[in-house]
């Protein structure tokens, strides 16, 4: 789920400086954009596979198994969230929160992963979730099909890294995304990996001119990595409430800086 919360400072930077970069976009972007699409396609293939197993478990009434599969299944979705703006309708049906609906959790329209999460953790049950599971799987498959034939606008890909970091800074950091399961750290893993992938792919284009910028960005990604690593548990992560106040502050600071810094990436690549 993407919420490009307005982290004012970065948005302001954008308003103030767009146009100030005389930089022209270059065809050197073709390679990273193509690579990124292949990355997304691989994530989506994995998402379809994992969502199939997850929704099968939900439909079979296997609460424990479904709970176990929830966070790992979401990982691939969270990794492609930088480009969720390209499919806002499916993003809503796959990953919206109860707050988007008039009657919140009780709203029959409340769909997707978080509707299932609510059932599994708050009700400890899969009752009534079969149609939600079917819809989720068909949405995820539709997403895969749609992405396959979609030409990625380069400014959306490059801008997506910042947009996602802004969302994490503005909302996700509070633990709102996975509020019933508290599996937020898994989502963070996906979000940071997904955003960093974009930076890594365009890195060769700016390595010389923007060495300092890249150094700062890398340092912040590393801070995130080190912090998340402390909470590693097997293949995944402990629940979000285990995060200490200090570490939460460290994460928040790193994400805020990333959001601000990455909001200049489009301009640096001539894509504003």
């Amino acid at each position: 789920m993407r919420i490009s919360g307005l982290v004012g400072a970065s948005a302001l930077t954008f308003v103030l400086t767009s146009g100030a970069f005389a930089q022209e976009a270059s065809l050197d972007l073709v390679e990273p954009i193509a690579e990124y699409k292949i990355y997304v396609s691989e994530k989506l293939a994995k998402l379809v596979e994992d969502t199939t197993a997850f929704t099968d478990a939900v439909k079979a009434g296997e609460v424990d198994k479904a709970k176990e599969l929830f966070a790992p299944t979401r990982l691939s979705y969270e990794a492609i969230e930088p480009i969720a703006e390209l499919f806002s309708d499916l993003d809503a049906s796959i990953d919206s929160r109860a707050d988007d609906y008039e009657k919140a959790e009780a709203d029959p329209e409340f769909p997707g992963f978080h509707r299932i999460e609510y059932g599994l953790w708050e009700k400890n049950s899969t009752e009534g979730l079969a149609p939600v599971a079917d819809k989720l799987l068909s949405d995820v498959k539709e997403l895969e099909g749609r992405i396959a034939s979609l030409t990625f606008p380069p400014e959306k890909v490059v801008g997506g890294a910042a947009v996602l970091m802004e969302e994490v800074a503005a909302t996700k950091i509070s633990g709102e995304e996975d509020r019933y399961s508290h599996t937020d750290l898994w989502d963070f893993r996906g979000n940071f990996d997904g955003a960093r992938k974009i930076v890594d792919l365009v890195r060769p284009l700016i390595a010389d001119k923007e060495a300092d910028f890249l150094k700062t960005v890398d340092a912040n990604f590393e801070t995130v990595d080190t912090t998340l690593a402390k909470y590693k548990d097997g293949e995944g992560y402990v629940t979000y409430d285990k995060l200490t106040d200090d570490d939460r502050k460290v994460l928040a600071a790193a994400v805020n800086t990333l959001a601000e810094d990455l909001s200049t990436l489009r301009g640096k690549l001539g894509l504003d």
Binding site: V7, R248, L251
Partner: peptide, 13 residues
């Protein structure tokens, strides 16, 4: 957990 995070992201936001 979210409320605690206010000191970080939320306040800045």
């Amino acid at each position: 957990a979210g409320v605690l995070a206010l000191a970080g992201g939320g306040a800045f936001y």
